[in-house]
Design a protein around this nucleic acid. Structure first.
Lengths: 330, 330
DNA sequence: ATGAAAGCGCTAACAA
DNA sequence: TTGTTAGCGCTTTCAT
């Protein structure tokens, strides 16, 4: 293996001191122009590349952001990561990605890894079983800001970034009502998750306020399969003129049931979902959806974390707004 | 910020030398049992965590693997990353994820980043525009093994891991023929990509050899939209009894056209795709597919890279086999 | 069984 | 404008 060139090498070749070379390379004002010139040329020639370890050890800070998610694949987190990476790179940061597999212990181990690597900051979508926030507090106390996103704990002690769930729920109900769809089968996820409760509450509240004459059935499904079955059974008679799905996974299940019944969209049944957009775009006709963009959430999360890394920690919960994307399915 | 404890702190408290503490913590045989005991207890108490930078600087090696992909989101790479992370973590490695945005320059910059961070190894899915392999050679020469995956260059100089494209193409044609579907509309991607050419060649060859009496139309699409339009037009008359899609993106387009024509699957038309499995599972009935698993590719890639990192570089191209997953759509 | 000391490559305060 | 020096936290010879 070709041993990499260091400041020392350059310094020796040029009969300069290491610090002069170091300063020349960072364009320090003290250094003479012709010296800088010579140093830069030789550095280029020797293919000098700074040793990140040494810099990090010296400055005790890295340009790496730790990201801990339950899983990378699936319906949502990969788009979050994509958006985050984009934004982070433009600020010179890289991403260290860790999956927790929705296991609190792995999550804690991953957190430790981030600490050992002196991550500049950490973004966490917690597991559904995360109860003990102490490890996060310790990390934060050690000077590594922690920001939660998407799946956030109740605690008010950390900054949090998430989708505007209430708004999305409201928008869902409002859209359906405006389109005259008032006999609704609304499918939500696991009631134990706060995301579900927030969306549900807003949806239900809006419906009751503005469509008292309508008919709303709320059902909960914890998987695509379950969503499919519930939908299939519910749509057997013609009670409903619209289906609402609170997530991609549930939409996927509902759509199968709709296709199985060979119902036409939007003639026989209207469909609306809360989604990142990929799945609704797969059907014909495409499905209208309330967009909860993973990319946007990623970018926004970086911004918040970035603030935490520089100055005062902006506590509180930041919401990424949702917007209606009309595709004609409702 | 709470300053972290170091070996030095522990050593001072215990009136030991730093090296003794270091050794005690690594369970070095030279150290007395009771000393180890004391050291470990205090380390625990002080919440000692080794400084990865110092270790890395000292040993000039990290436990981080650089991953450079055109994009994280989309139909494929996120599942690759998920599989890779799983495997890497079990070996104590973490992932540094970099998106190239399919831009060769960004790719080169990312490569540089990996070098600066002394990545233990690098996995690259190259951009379609990557022509100059010199940067990769330099990285490799610097002692950081580079392994290409999925989108691999022609060069024989690096180890490569990819899907068994020829096999997948063969399996596609073979399956259709066995099912008696011989009037086929086969949709492929950009002909400039080697993945397309490999799949196409095997598919076409197999068809010609075993279904000379059949009718095969090959079409190329570079986007979901294009695939949709081509399919819609082609299916206007009843020439075909099966559609074959070489990728998820193309399948998505084709399915829209099929739904638009309100054709029944498999009665009116058979459908078969090469896919990772997520998309085919969204339709009703689900679509049969030749599985090209991103997860598996990720795990396999780690294995190859791991070999490269330890001993002799196993050159050549490694193929991840594909298997038929029957869902009854053909 | 334990300690002393060198050094990984870099930065930055201080000297000259 | 440039050089000297100390030190970041750790590992690892080489003593003792």
């Amino acid at each position: 293996m070709k041993s990499r060139s260091t400041l020392k090498h350059i310094a020796e070749h040029l009969h300069l001191s290491i610090s002069t070379v170091s300063r020349a390379l960072k364009d320090h004002p003290d250094i003479a122009a012709h010296t800088k010139q010579k140093v830069r040329e030789l550095a280029e020639l020797l293919e000098y590349e700074p040793n990140a370890f040494a810099i990090q050890l010296r400055t005790n800070a890295s340009k790496v952001i730790g990201v801990i998610v339950p899983e990378i694949s699936g319906y949502f987190y990969h788009s979050f990561i994509a958006g985050l990476e984009d934004e982070a790179r433009s600020w010179g940061y890289s991403l260290m990605i860790l999956q927790s597999g929705n296991d609190p212990e792995v999550e804690a181990a991953n957190l430790r890894l981030c600490r050992m690597n002196r991550a500049a900051g950490i973004l966490v979508a917690s597991t559904s079983g995360t109860k003990d926030l102490a490890p996060f507090e310790r990390t934060d106390a050690a000077g590594i800001p922690v920001v939660f996103f998407d799946k956030v704990p109740e605690s008010r002690q950390f900054p949090k970034v998430s989708m505007a769930d209430a708004e999305a729920g409201f928008l869902g109900a409002d859209t359906l009502i405006r389109k005259g769809r008032k006999r609704i089968l609304a499918l939500f996820g696991d009631h134990a998750l706060s995301i579900t409760r927030k969306r549900l509450k807003a949806f239900q509240g809006t419906f009751q306020r503005h469509a008292a004459d309508g008919h709303l059935t709320i059902r909960h499904a914890r998987s695509q399969q379950e969503a499919r079955q519930i939908t299939f059974e519910a749509l057997a008679d013609q009670t409903y003129n619209a289906v609402f799905a609170m997530s991609d996974e549930i939409l996927a299940g509902a759509m199968k049931a709709i296709m199985q019944h060979r119902l036409r969209i939007p003639e026989d049944i209207g469909v609306l979902a809360i989604s990142t957009g990929l799945i609704p775009g797969l059907y014909e006709p495409e499905i209208s959806y309330i967009e909860t963009s993973g990319e946007t959430l990623g970018k926004r999360s970086f911004e918040i974390l970035h603030k935490c890394m520089s100055k005062a920690t902006p506590l509180g919960e930041f919401l990424v707004p949702s917007t209606l994307v009309e595709k004609g399915s409702v």
